[in-house]
Amino acid sequence: MNGIPFAHERKVTLCHVCGYVCPEDAHDCPRCDSAVHRRKPNSLVRTWAFLIAGLIFYIPANTLPVMFTTLLGSASENTIMSGVIEFAEGGSWDIAILIFIASVLVPCVKFLVLGMLLVTCQRRSQWAMRERSRLYRFIELIGYWSMLDVLVVALVAALVQFRGLSTIEPRLGILFFGLVVVMTMLAAMSFDPRLIWDAEVEDV
């Protein structure tokens, strides 16, 4: 495609830490001493592993309560979705949508996009490479916004501590939800977007 050379054709590799153009046979970057790999090691396998771990944690993250509220003697437990619904019913549509995007949509989009990228890379597909490359950068960008709910629960639980009147405590669900975010972030980091483009040259 349009004759731009790939780095490996000229026997060089990028150092991901400092951006130095390293010789292909270097194990460590000559400039910053970090380990240099032609492609991220075991990229596909590691990404699958983190992705599947994230998917497994996603089940308890949504079914277990994330927050336990007592208000004047009455106790209630909230899951992530029931929190969203509570906002929506209370009339705060904007906040409901915001939390829905950060806590439900973003992780789901990440699962779907990463899964699609993994499958297409394993099939060495040459389909929509530029767009897939863009999609990868997009999910890298939005990934950490899912931590929103974890931080909201932390703040609210720290604030509402009026014994006898009202208290809010975090519950196990928030741990799993946080782990989902960490796992999907690690999955996105272990995926090597250069694999998308390898199909173009290495098949020939």
Binding site: I4, A7, R10, V12, L14, G19, V21, P193, R194
Partner: peptide, 14 residues
């Protein structure tokens, strides 16, 4: 090496 730049997303060399 200082005269070159590699795209971190697709390994193109410029």
């Amino acid at each position: 090496p200082a005269q070159w730049i590699i795209c971190e997303h697709c390994d193109s060399l410029y």
